[in-house]
């Protein structure tokens, strides 16, 4: 039996990432120095999420072929 997720759950992570990205895009526009640094951190989060998800997927593959 496959479990179906409610939409609230499906969109929870994308919603949080959208808020973080929006903050990152605006922060550097509003100020310099600390504002820039916070923007870099915020925009690095979605990129890091991608890297983690993809490498996790690849590890599963390695485990299966071993």
């Amino acid at each position: 039996m496959s479990t179906t997720l409610p939409f609230r759950k499906i969109y929870a992570a994308p919603f949080i990432l959208a808020i973080i990205t929006a903050y990152g895009l605006l922060s550097a526009l509003l100020g310099d120095g600390l504002w820039d640094a916070l923007s870099w951190i915020a925009l690095a989060i979605p990129i890091a999420v991608l890297a983690i998800c993809i490498s996790r997927g690849k590890q599963v593959r390695g485990a299966m072929t071993r």
Partner: peptide, 20 residues
């Protein structure tokens, strides 16, 4: 695309990447 993401992800966890 964001709207059809939900229906397509009904049975998959966020971040699923089936490299195998």
């Amino acid at each position: 695309g964001a709207l059809v993401y939900g229906p397509f992800m009904r049975n998959l966890r966020f971040g699923t990447y089936r490299a195998n």
